[in-house]
């Protein structure tokens, strides 16, 4: 049974990458959109370019993973293609994990493009590679799982897109990407503390420019928790919908 699940996850991941993710509009959206946003802030405050790199990485992961993830399952339910996966000899959590892996791989690849550019400009002397890799992978997992939860919770693709944006765009401004969380009003700081993007930015900041290691460790644990909770909820919702 485990071999069926692993094989199925791998097949679903590759199929999704080929069918959905590796299309020019997705690639350009995943890379250019975060760059465009960061550029807007750099133009306003050119001296802060280096400080924006962790946020840029986190944003790329957020949009790279969740943009398609939020609609793929809904789309396949509408077309009936999801049934092919439900008929296959693999368990529902494995099916969902395969879906998540597709989004994660795509998000990580687009983030690596951004990372390479950033390293070329700023150098790699301060980078904590282990922390960076762990942070990127767990952030990708959390964002992909969030996208999947959105996708299984609605019936129409446009609903999935709307719901995903309701979460993502406020997260962008409250998650410490452009302004430090501590500079936000107290109420918004509380909100920021329940957003996965906040912890992704903190981990990636410590990994790329330095900072308190404890902040990074807390961030990793919270990102893992977000990924687990979103994945668990998505599995539960999907199981109820298909029964």
């Amino acid at each position: 049974m485990l071999s069926d699940d692993l094989r199925g996850m791998w097949a679903i991941m590759l199929k999704d990458l080929r069918a959905y993710y590796l299309k020019p509009p997705n690639v350009s959206w995943g890379i250019l959109f975060p760059f465009a946003f960061v550029l807007a802030f750099v133009i306003r405050d050119p001296g802060n370019l280096g400080g924006l790199v962790p946020g840029l990485l986190a944003l790329t992961l957020l949009f790279g993973t969740s943009s398609m993830e939020a609609i793929v399952i809904t789309f396949e339910q509408q077309t009936g293609a999801l049934e092919r996966l439900l008929l296959a000899p693999l368990r529902l959590p494995a099916l969902l994990a395969g879906k998540l892996l597709g989004g994660m791989v795509f998000g990580l690849v687009t983030a690596c493009v951004v990372l390479i550019v950033a390293l070329a400009v700023f150098g790699a002397s301060q980078v904590n590679w282990l922390l960076l890799i762990l942070g990127m992978v767990l952030a990708a997992a959390a964002f992909s799982a969030m996208g999947a939860l959105v996708s299984v919770s609605v019936k129409e693709v446009f609903e999935a897109q709307t719901l995903a944006n309701i979460f993502r765009f406020p997260m962008m401004f409250l998650g410490g990407v452009f302004v430090p969380v501590t500079s936000l009003p107290l109420g918004l700081q509380v909100v920021a503390r329940v957003l996965p993007l906040t912890y992704a930015v903190e981990v990636l900041r410590v990994a790329t420019v330095g900072g308190e290691r404890s902040v990074a460790i807390v961030g990793l644990v919270v990102l893992a928790a977000f990924a687990s909770v979103f994945y668990g909820l998505a599995s539960w919702v999907l199981a109820r919908r298909v029964a």
Binding site: D4, R18, A19, Y20, G80, E83, R84, L87, P89
Partner: peptide
Amino acid sequence: KRRIGVVPEASNLYDEL
């Protein structure tokens, strides 16, 4: 599931493949 095949009413393979 390993030993059965199913053809649903709608032809639901993947359009992009």
